[in-house]
Amino acid sequence: MESIFFYIGFGFFCIATFFFIIHLITLKNIWSGFGNYAILIAIVSYTLYLIFRGFIIRHFPVTSVHEGLVLLCLLLGILFLVFFHKYKLKVVGVFLAPLATFFSLIAFFVKQPPMPVLNTLQSFWLPIHVGSIFIGNALFSLSFVFSVVYIIENFRLKKKKFDNFGKQFPSLTTLDNINYMCIVYGFPFMTLGMITGAIWAQYAVGSYWNNDPKEIWSLITWMLYAAILHCRLISGWRGKKIAVFSIVAFLVLVFSFVGVTYLFKGYHIFRGI
């Protein structure tokens, strides 16, 4: 029954993507306005979906990749609203809506019924661990989006190619700054998520580090983002290098999030929770 909310949310992310593409072509603000409402509906649906699932298993409902992705899309939608209304960056939707649609599509393919949480792992650490990890993921997704836009804009300015397409894109400085902000805010959440994960593991499994593939790949990702912050703060990197670095780090993040779950075995593969 609760699946209906997932399909509604998924549908409205698709519709929002469609609206933002029209916005990009026509440059008419009315379309980004429609997109804004579509995303709003999608957020509400996903929220209801997770609440229903939470009621079914009587726990914070992040027990599968599917639910994780839904939560991620939900957070992306909320971040979109922040950027849309606070920073008036309408163009964010052009990239965020397809990203949320893409993640929703994956969520659709790996959809599974809600599963009860194993007794051993039932703990209040679960929502803190998973929640902060996902807030971090959402911010890093945004950093990825802005990095891609930066690379495109940088290319166009260097090659001196101009057309209507990029008229509403933010300036390079803005893109660079927002990308940096996303990482600066995302990094502590990721760190918090990893620390709480370790504490939780200590309680649940008896050891804070278990050489689990997910743990290893998460640590790699964490180090990559730490390196980005280091390069920016200490070595003064800016612009293209940071953008490329952020894209690479995000791809590794996606791998550690989705890829590891299906390629490797380990207690961290959601289904084991």
Binding site: L157, P170, S171, T174
Partner: peptide
């Protein structure tokens, strides 16, 4: 305009 595209 170009300067604004770079510096905001």
């Amino acid at each position: 305009e170009l300067a604004k595209k770079i510096f905001e």
